[in-house]
Design a protein around this nucleic acid. Structure first.
Lengths: 126, 126
DNA sequence: CTTGCTATTTATAACGT
DNA sequence: TACGTTATAAATAGCAA
């Protein structure tokens, strides 16, 4: 059997590219999960491909909702509660602006960078 | 030599955990790069750990700046230019709110989810 | 197009320095 | 504590159905 050594370049064959995408995406998700568990850290990953109309994210919805529920149900002092509320308020503003950005971007599909990526970038001061 | 089969749980030993983090982060970055190149897609990943004061991102600064420069230098009609400008404006608002959120979060370190993650989540409508 | 199967390549845990 | 080595575990390219 012939088993090539992975030519690190864009796969021009459509079906082969998609197959590789599905396999490697699965592997990547597993790696993300393992790193997060083993080292106890927060990771966020977003994949924006033409294979899915919506960006694919990690953690998945279930994981995200679990974290959010935990956050909401967390016992807290008044002060921290206040801080949480302020954070919620700011998050709402971000979400609102994100909606606008997403809407705006609908007319602008051919651009090579997505609103989601913009948020990631601006989120870390880039 | 004894080579364990990876116990998928938090590594309690500090130095061992950090060593694993460094190795696996390197591997993860490589996987991200390969998937992006092979399949021609946009990926964004953010790692928020206690090992670095700033979140670590992929692509790195060089890659991000290259993409942004490409975006800025892109020839465009008036209408798309206008849309870009509007996007820039919204992005500024997001960045500004992000700063506030980050500042607010400084007093709230023990929470299990970070401002950056919040942005990622709200960015995809979660 | 998707799933299962291995031959190979790649990642990495445990050590040694 | 960080870096190099190597045995073993894990990921995956190419095929078959």
């Amino acid at each position: 059997m012939t088993r090539k050594k992975v030519k690190l370049a864009f796969i021009t064959n459509d079906s082969a590219r998609k197959a590789t995408f599905r396999k490697r995406k699965k592997g990547l998700m597993k790696k993300l999960s393992e790193l997060s568990t083993l080292c106890g850290i927060d990771i966020c990953a977003i994949i924006y491909s033409s294979y899915e109309s919506q960006p694919e994210v990690w953690p998945d919805n279930r994981g995200i909702h679990r974290v959010l529920a935990q956050f909401k149900g967390m016992p807290e002092m008044e002060q921290s509660k206040k801080m949480v509320n302020q954070e919620s308020f700011i998050r709402q503003r971000i979400a609102k602006a994100s909606e606008q950005l997403k809407k705006q971007h609908k007319e602008n599909r051919e651009k090579q960078i997505t609103p989601v990526m913009y948020q990631c970038l601006t989120g870390v001061g880039l």
